[in-house]
Amino acid sequence: MDYSANEMMTVAAARALTSEDVCFVGIGAPSAACNLARLTHAPGVTLIYESGTIGTEPNVLPLSIGDGELCETALTTVSVPEMFRYWLQGGRITIGFLGGAQMDRFGNLNTTIVGDYHSPKVRLPGGGGAPEIAVHAQQIYITMKQSPRGFVPRIDFFTSFGFGEGGEDRARRGIATKGPTRLMTDMAVWAPEPETKELQVVSLHPGVTREAMAASVGWEILYAEDVGETPPPTAEELEILRDLHARTKAAHAGSG
């Protein structure tokens, strides 16, 4: 079955989740991946959106983190202060799923600004929940497309903290959680090198070459000793993902 790089990315990201996870879901690519996981191999996964919806099971992907669908299908909905105080800061989230506009080799993310903060070239939306998700979720999964504009040697702004300067930087700052343990892109799956914490490629998606990788990333890529090939999406994964997108498109094209 033919598939797009985008579909490969979503499928690879979905596979990282298990039924035991309690996942704080960012909007966009993470939302598609988390719901694909729930509809395939991880039916028990608990999805939480920052609007306060706990254990939500949306039939279509929400356009915003606060669509009514999320509340109607949730186990319960709490206030936003409670969400951040008891559930995130309280340490009950196993996986925080984030994306970004810019990322560096240590998984630090920028969604705030391009250029200088006080006279920006582009004003992006900002951090929302991400600065605290990045330090309070037990692990962080990142999903974003590779491009020289996005995968940069130095991000313009530290919206959310990954491994900082690498090594033991998290521990030095008193952060007890693991940080970005997995990155799923449209070309590869990455994970931190155990000592330096620099993200390294652990598997390439089918057909992706190291030359194409080099052209899409703004630093010299580190490869694990034993780089595998990401298994392609199965027919079942693709079918469920496409159904989900079709339902979503139909729902959002109308008036609600």
Binding site: Q89, A134, F161
Partner: peptide, 13 residues
């Protein structure tokens, strides 16, 4: 107060 803004650029600006 909260446990937060750790390593976050907003602290600087």
């Amino acid at each position: 107060l909260m446990r937060g803004y750790i390593g976050a650029g907003l602290r600087e600006v």
